[in-house]
Design a protein around this nucleic acid. Structure first.
Lengths: 340, 340
DNA sequence: AAAAACGCTGCAAACGTTTGCGCAAACAAC
DNA sequence: GTTGTTTGCGCAAACGTTTGCAGCGTTTTT
C-alpha cells in the first residue's frame, strides 16, 4: 500500500488538507510549513494518487483518441501515427495524457468511446476521421463533452469543432497541375466513399476539370476500399478505350500500390503514366520514381486538433471553432508533361 | 452532474450496495431485485463512474504503453503502429484500455511513466523498445509493477518479462541467404547502436559470416541513427576498395532509403547490389524492386506482449516468462546470385 | 415449536483526494 | 486593553464506488 496524503500529514504533524495545499502550492500555506511538508513527502516517497484527485476534481487531464476502424492496410499508412504524434506533442506540453480506443469494429469502437465518456475517464475526445453514418459524433454531441474531429464532419457541421485541410482545394490544385502539364484524361482513385475526405477531393477534382472545360467521366472516378480493390481499379482504367494518361491516388501507400500494378503491366511512370498522390509521407520521397504528393501537414492536423480540444476543455467557448491547415503540392518525378 | 448509484438506489428503493451488486451481477441478489434495479438504471441512463470504482478496487483495467523517443523518421516506420495494433487487439478482448506516453525526449517519457505508475493510472506497462542506459526498465522493476518489454532487455534480462524475435537467428538467416547466393562481401547497416536489436542482429550477421569462413570486416558493419546517416553510410560503403555486393538494412524504410541513394548513383538493385531488410511491412512488397525482407511478425509481438502482461496482472506469476516470436524470410526481387 | 440455516438486503467504512468554512493566534489600530 | 483584521491551518464533507458484516424474514431441521 502506497503512502498517502494522510501518512504524510501524520508524520509532518499537519492536517491532510495542509498537505494537499502544499501539493498545489497554495498561497495560504507559509513557506516554513511548505518546506517541512515537502521534506516529509520526499522522505516518504509520496506520489499523488491521480484517481482520487480525478474523483473530486471531476477533471482527468486525459483525452481520448478515436481511431478509425483499422483494417490491416490502414495500419501501414502513416497517417495515424503522424496525427497521433501531433496530438501527443501538444498534449504533452499541457500535461495531458492520452488514451486510445482499442476496438477494430465500429461497434467495438463505439463501446470504447462510451466507456471513456460515460465512465468519466476523459475530459474530451479527438475523432481522427470523418465518415458517413458514423455514430460517434452524434453521440458526443448529445453527451455535450468537448470534442474535435480531424476532417470535416458530415453532419452537424457547424455545431462541431474540427481541424481539416481544404481538401476540395487540394485536389483541385493537384488536378490543375496535371492539366497544366497537358493531361486531359485524368483518373482519380479516391478512398472509401464513406469517408468525407474522399468526397471532397473528388469534388475538387471535378471542379478543376470543369474549370478547364474537360469532360468529367464517371469511369475515371473510382473509389478503393482496400489494396486489392486498387488493383482491380487500375486494371479497369487500363482497359478503357480512352486510357487515362494520369492517375491521382488517395494517399502515398495507395499510389505506391498503383505504381506497382502499373509496373507489373510494363507501364512506366512517368513516361507512360503520370502519378500524383496525397499526404507526402516519407515513402513518397523514397520510392522510384519519387512521387509528387500533396503535403497535408498531418502532424499539424494532430497538433491543432489537440490544441483546439484542450482549449475548449479549459474554457468552454460559446461557438465551435474550426481550423484549416494549408496544403502544399510537393513536386517530384512521377508526373511528366503530356503532348497529344 | 451525472446520475449516480445513489440516485438509482433511491429511485429503486434499495440501498446503493444493492445497486452495486446488481452491476456486478452478484449471485447474492435475487432476480426480481436485479430486474427492478436494471429497469431503473436504464430509465435514468445510469453509467458507472470508473474512477470511483478504480479508487476502491485498486485496479484500473488500463495498461500504459511506452513509446521510444520518437524522432520524426521513426514515425514513418510502421513498426510502432503495428505493434500497437497487436496490443490493442488483445487488450480489447480483455476489456482493457490503453494509455500512451506523450513525451518526445527520454526525460519526458520517464516523467510520463512515473505519472502513470505512481499516479496509479495503470495496472501494468508495455515498453516497446529495449535500449542501453534506459531508466524505465530499472524503475519499473523497482516499483514492482507488472510490465513487459518488446525486445530483449539489456539488463536484468532474466528478471523481466519480454516478447522478442530471435534476432541473432533472424540476421543469421538473412546473411546466410546472401551467402548461399554467392555473396561474400556483405555489408550490414544496423540501427542505432544503443538499441538491443541492433546488437543482436549484428551478432547474427557475424556468426553467419564466420560460420562460412568469411572475413568479418568492421568497415562493412555500420550503425545508422537517422535517415541522413544512412545516406553517408551508403557513400562510405561505395567508396570502399572492396565494395560490398550486398547490403542488409535494419528495417524496410531504411532499406528503401539505401535503395534510393543507390539509385541516385546509378547502382541497380538487384543487378549491381543485393538488398535485404527486416520487418516485411507493406512497403517492402510495393516498391520496385520488391524487397526481400525478414518478417518479424510485428503484430504478434504486440499481441503477445499484451497477453503476457495482462495474464501477469490478473495473476502474478512466480517467475518471469518470456516469449519468442518466430521470423520468416520473405524472398522477393531485391537479391540476386553473385558470381565472382 | 424452538433452533438452525439460509437468502437477501442494508449499514457503514473505506479508497485518497480537494475545498469551503471556521477558528485560533498574531498583529495592527484605536 | 479592547476591537478588528489578517494569516495559517484544521475539520469535515464530498467525489462515487465496493464490500465485510450484520440483520431480518423465511424456510428447513430437529
Amino acid at each position: 500500500m502506497a503512502v498517502t496524503i494522510k501518512d504524510v500529514a501524520k508524520k509532518a504533524n499537519v492536517a491532510p488538507s495542509t498537505v494537499s495545499r502544499v501539493i498545489s502550492d497554495s498561497p495560504n500555506i507559509s513557506e516554513r510549513t511548505k518546506r517541512k511538508v515537502r521534506k516529509v513527502m520526499d522522505e516518504m516517497g509520496y506520489y499523488i494518487n491521480l484517481n482520487a484527485r480525478v474523483l473530486v476534481q471531476q477533471s482527468t487531464q486525459n483525452i481520448g483518441i478515436v481511431m478509425k476502424n483499422s483494417t490491416v492496410e490502414s495500419l501501414h499508412d502513416p497517417f495515424f501515427p503522424v496525427v497521433l504524434q501531433g496530438i501527443s506533442s501538444y498534449a504533452n506540453k499541457q500535461e495531458f495524457s492520452i488514451s486510445l480506443t482499442t476496438g477494430d469494429t465500429e461497434e467495438a469502437i463505439f463501446h470504447d468511446v462510451e466507456k471513456m465518456v460515460q465512465g468519466k475517464r476523459v475530459d474530451g475526445i479527438i475523432v481522427t476521421y470523418s465518415k458517413d453514418n458514423d455514430k460517434v459524433v452524434p453521440y458526443l454531441l448529445k453527451c455535450g463533452i468537448p470534442f474535435v474531429v480531424v476532417g470535416k464532419p458530415v453532419i452537424h457541421t457547424n455545431e462541431v469543432m474540427y481541424v481539416n485541410n481544404d481538401n476540395v482545394q487540394a485536389a483541385k490544385e493537384a488536378t490543375e497541375y496535371l492539366i497544366q502539364l497537358g493531361h486531359d484524361k485524368i483518373a482519380f482513385i479516391a478512398g472509401d466513399k464513406e469517408f468525407e475526405v474522399s468526397g471532397s477531393r473528388t469534388r475538387g477534382y471535378k471542379e478543376a476539370m470543369q474549370a478547364h472545360n474537360l469532360e468529367v467521366k464517371d469511369e475515371y472516378i473510382k473509389h478503393s476500399t482496400n489494396m486489392e480493390s486498387v488493383e482491380n481499379i487500375v486494371y479497369q482504367l487500363l482497359a478503357l478505350s480512352e486510357r487515362p494518361s494520369a492517375i491521382i491516388g488517395t494517399d502515398d501507400l495507395a499510389t505506391l500500390h498503383i505504381m506497382s500494378v502499373l509496373r507489373k503491366n510494363n507501364i512506366n511512370v512517368p513516361e507512360d503514366m503520370s502519378l500524383i498522390s496525397f499526404n507526402n509521407t516519407m515513402v513518397a520521397k523514397l520510392v522510384n520514381p519519387a512521387v509528387t504528393s500533396v503535403d497535408t501537414n498531418i502532424f499539424q492536423l494532430g497538433y491543432e486538433s489537440a490544441r483546439t480540444l484542450i482549449e475548449e476543455i479549459k474554457e468552454k467557448s460559446t461557438f465551435p471553432k474550426s481550423v484549416i491547415i494549408p496544403t502544399k503540392l510537393e513536386i517530384r518525378d512521377s508526373c511528366r508533361s503530356y503532348k497529344k
